[in-house]
């Protein structure tokens, strides 16, 4: 059984009487250990899909399972626990808590899993070492560069040892050089066996993943547009 099984997911918004199908009958599977990108133009529904798969949002129709759990049957508290234990998020705008130090930000998920303070510290330090920020533990997010902030976010995403990491345009707010370094980090994590789902509109980034799901107007494209997917030069 695949790590993530998506069956006929739809997400419909109603805006002033108009119906917006952000997702339209999407089905897909993601295997454990995959390094996969969800690609599509802006507004195609990538983030919507990622939020649903990450239990941050719920679909209008359809079902999906994550690591054997049918999410539509899970209560809100169970979904919070799944987010806490099985999922790591990396966002375009980092989403760190500005009032907390780097270390405290990385410890945050463990606070909600009831891990003791000393264990929290140990694991947060290990995660920060993995992203090579062990010397910045006392800094505030605002005292770090964009790339460093994103690495803190990655450390936070990994600290509870999740089954899957969702990264929504993780390089979208970084210069190309820094972005490239972040992608290299993801690549390394993937090689270490983690499941990573990268959401992007950028063909060059999609090209660096091992598989691509293309999404257009809320639907999965039957055939991956090779140019868009970065497999062929434009």
């Amino acid at each position: 059984m695949a790590l993530v099984e998506v069956r006929n997911l739809s997400k419909i918004y109603h805006l002033g009487g108009e119906e917006i199908r952000a997702l339209d009958d999407v089905s897909a599977e993601i295997e454990g250990g995959e390094f996969i990108s969800i690609i599509g133009p802006s507004g195609s529904g990538k983030s919507t899909l990622m939020h649903i798969l990450g239990c941050l949002d719920s679909p209008t129709h359809g079902t999906f399972s994550l690591d054997g759990t049918e999410i539509q049957n899970a209560s809100r508290a169970e979904q919070a626990k799944i987010r806490n234990q099985k999922i790591g998020f990396v966002f375009q705008f980092f989403n760190l808590l500005p009032k907390l130090s780097v270390l405290q930000n990385v410890e945050l998920p463990m606070i909600y899993s009831g891990i003791s303070a000393s264990e929290r510290r140990k694991r947060a330090m290990a995660a920060l070492e993995m992203v090579e920020l062990q010397n910045r533990t006392k800094h505030r997010p605002m005292q770090l560069s964009g790339g460093q902030q994103q690495r803190v976010a990655i450390a936070r995403a990994l600290v509870n040892n999740p089954k899957i990491v969702f990264a929504d345009e993780p390089t979208g707010n970084l210069d190309s050089h820094t972005g490239s370094a972040i992608l290299a980090l993801f690549k390394r994590l993937s090689e270490e066996g983690r499941t990573i789902v990268l959401v992007t509109h950028d063909p060059n980034i999609a090209a660096r993943t091992t598989r691509r799901i293309e999404i257009r107007d809320g639907k999965i494209a039957e055939q991956v547009d090779e140019t868009l997917a970065g497999l062929k030069p434009r």
Binding site: R76, A80, R83, N95, L96, L108, P109, Y112
Partner: peptide, 14 residues
């Protein structure tokens, strides 16, 4: 902040 806390696993009661 509340959104971020929820994203990393804070429940309603937390």
């Amino acid at each position: 902040e509340i959104g971020i806390r929820k994203a990393v696993g804070a429940t309603f009661s937390d």
